[in-house]
Simulated assay, not measured.
Amino acid sequence: MSTPTEQLSAAGVSIWLDDLSRSRITSGNLAELIATRDVVGVTTNPSIFQAAIGGGAEAYTAQISELAASGASVDDAIFAATTDDVRDAADIFTPVFEKSGGVDGRVSIEVSPDLAHDTDATVAQAKELWSTVDRANVLIKIPATKAGLPAITQVIGEGISVNVTLIFSLERYAEVIDAYLAGLELAQANGHDLSRIQSVASFFVSRVDTEVDKRLAAIGTDEALGLKSLAGVANARLAYELYEQKFAEPRATALLAAGGTLQRPLWASTGVKDPALPDTLYVTELVAPGTVNTMPEKTLEATFDHGVVAGDTISGTYETAHKVFADLAAVGIDFADVTQLLEDEGVEKFIASWQDLKNTVREALNTAAVAR
């Protein structure tokens, strides 16, 4: 009997772990998840690094001491610690990367969240992260803000693989795909091998339900309450419909024929926030070929333990998904307002985590300096 994670992989879903820490790397835990849970990639974000470095200080003590001795700044120390972790994780995933022809075995690292509204600074740091990690299987995460869109194009145009993050609306997702295609065109003009450039578009799921359900509860009618916990999955399914449509258009097919790769949809924020919902909801209801699901470990273990994988659960659902949004509008949900709020909050949360990380590292550097 195959396991649910094996079944998920067989259905065309790449399982990525939404977490990374030095202790996962050095203890062998990451390698174990690759071997036993079918994990073929890792995503990180500022909140994950804050939890890793803030909660696992011992794993970083020696490096922090060395950095303190060299007079490193807080920003330099964070850059060194996080890029080292990502490089080491990328090395662990190298066999997966090679076996998958460069599609999987990917490790993501994000540009500083306080650059989310600065195109030029995002491009500069993306290039610095790419060259510093210096591994073909890294993905540079860039948020899908208005300032992030031209940065995505420029970075792809440099031949750098990109994970586009914080996507909530179909409208912004369409712009992300266009930014990717423009990047491939630029890369082609710059003489890059398009087949070596990979990209994923991270579409956030559970946060949509959290915000919409709060608004539906405030409306309080039977019609509104009957729509709870439907928006997140419906939104993601319509994203897959858009993906199928956009990559079948002549602009995309010409680039694919020239060696370009599909920008795969990635389901992010797949940990269930509402305890009344099945804990594998955002995994089993979003199964389709050529997708990625990045899961917190709790969701990964729930899926492995009792996930029911019933093949493709996206194709053929588009009419129902469109009706969900028609019904949400009918009861008074302004979904454009929901998604803009979620994007703004997403950037703000990552900035807050980044500031917490800076404070943690600052204290560690000061402690190490005093101990010398």
Rank of each mutant, 00 (worst) to 15 (best):
Q7R: 13
L8P: 12
S9M: 08
A10G: 09
G12W: 01
I15W: 07
L17S: 14
L20T: 04
T44R: 01
I48V: 11
I48W: 06
I48H: 00
F49W: 11
G54R: 06
G55M: 08
I64S: 02
S65N: 14
L67R: 06
G71D: 03
G71K: 01
G71Q: 02
V74C: 03
D75H: 08
A77C: 02
F79E: 14
A80P: 03
R87L: 01
V96T: 12
K99R: 14
V103Q: 12
G105C: 06
S108V: 05
D114A: 12
D114N: 14
D114Y: 13
T119C: 05
T119K: 05
D120L: 08
A121Q: 13
K127R: 12
K127W: 07
V138H: 08
I140W: 11
K141Y: 03
I142R: 08
P143H: 00
P143Q: 00
K146V: 11
A147Q: 11
A147N: 08
G148T: 02
L149N: 11
L149V: 04
P150S: 01
A151I: 01
I152H: 05
E158M: 09
E158W: 12
V162M: 01
I167C: 13
S169A: 12
L170Q: 14
I177G: 01
Y180F: 10
Y180K: 06
L181R: 10
L186I: 04
A187T: 09
Q188E: 14
N190M: 09
N190C: 01
G191N: 06
L194M: 04
L194R: 12
S199N: 10
V200H: 03
V200N: 00
A201T: 04
I219V: 12
D222G: 07
L225P: 09
G226C: 03
S229N: 15
N235M: 08
A236N: 07
A239D: 10
A239F: 15
E244H: 14
E244A: 15
E249I: 06
E249V: 03
P250K: 08
L256Q: 09
A258T: 11
A258H: 05
G259L: 08
G260Y: 01
Q263H: 15
L266Y: 05
G271S: 15
A276L: 10
P278N: 02
D279I: 06
D279F: 02
T280E: 03
Y282C: 07
V292D: 07
N293Q: 09
E297V: 03
T299S: 09
T303H: 04
H306W: 09
V309A: 07
A310Y: 10
D312Q: 02
D312Y: 10
S315L: 04
Y318F: 15
D327V: 07
L328A: 09
G332W: 06
G332E: 02
A336R: 15
Q340D: 13
E348T: 14
E348C: 05
S353Q: 07
S353D: 13
D356V: 04
D356R: 00
T360R: 02
V361S: 03
V361Y: 00
L365P: 06
A371V: 10
